[in-house]
């Protein structure tokens, strides 16, 4: 791999802002899915209740 390296980036120069961007997108996705879950669980179906005595 080293033949393709264009520059050496050390510990202090490296700022992983791309990682921050990707992880932020992931958090947005799982947050939206978490809200969507409310509709799947509670509005799309009858309540999933166990233990009720008829």
């Amino acid at each position: 791999m080293s033949s393709k390296l264009q520059r050496e980036i050390g510990h202090d120069e490296f700022d992983p802002k791309g990682t921050l961007a990707l992880i932020t997108i992931y958090f947005v996705i799982i947050s939206v899915l978490w809200i969507f879950m409310y509709f799947v669980e509670f509005l799309g179906n009858d309540l999933t209740v166990v233990g009720a005595i008829a």
Partner: peptide, 16 residues
């Protein structure tokens, strides 16, 4: 992901 990004930037990658 940060380790992959380190590799990508050493290979000339840029931007977010």
């Amino acid at each position: 992901v940060a380790s992959m990004e380190h590799g990508a930037r050493q290979r000339g990658g840029t931007g977010y």
